[in-house]
């Protein structure tokens, strides 16, 4: 594919992915007062975060076991009140260590 053709494809793709995010944001500038819509929007992020996490978290590393360990570490550290970064870092380390151990097992 020539670079000129590539740019044409890129332009179409980028316009769609940008406009779909931009238009709603430009249309809705005021605070929404309707209680039902506000309730709906309040729950959206929690639901989105949950759907993105479960069940795919268990397939996010090279083995379900290391992912499950990372999941447990994240839950425990969060319950203990650790910061976001700490939770993320220790989960990564847990995956790394678990996979090292798994490699040594027969």
């Amino acid at each position: 594919m020539s670079f000129g053709v590539f740019i044409k494809y890129l332009a179409v793709m980028a316009s769609v992915t940008y406009l779909i995010r931009l238009i709603p944001m430009l249309l809705i500038k005021k605070q929404i007062r309707n209680r039902f819509i506000r309730s709906f929007l309040y729950y959206i992020p929690f639901s989105v975060l949950t759907v993105m996490t479960v069940p795919v978290v268990f397939f996010s590393t090279s083995s379900v076991i290391s992912a499950a360990v990372a999941f447990a570490v994240a839950v425990i550290l969060t319950v203990l009140g650790k910061k976001l970064i700490t939770v993320a870092a220790f989960s990564c380390i847990a995956v790394f260590v678990t996979e090292m151990i798994l490699n040594f097992l027969p």
Binding site: Y43, T50, T53, V57, S60, T61, T78, V87, C92, M100
Partner: peptide, 28 residues
Amino acid sequence: QVISALGCAIYAMFIAIVLPEAKSDVSV
């Protein structure tokens, strides 16, 4: 192994965001 380990960072963070809210608020 490093790519694999980094792969879970995002999910760990999601858990760290959602869980405290879920703990304190019955509706969440």
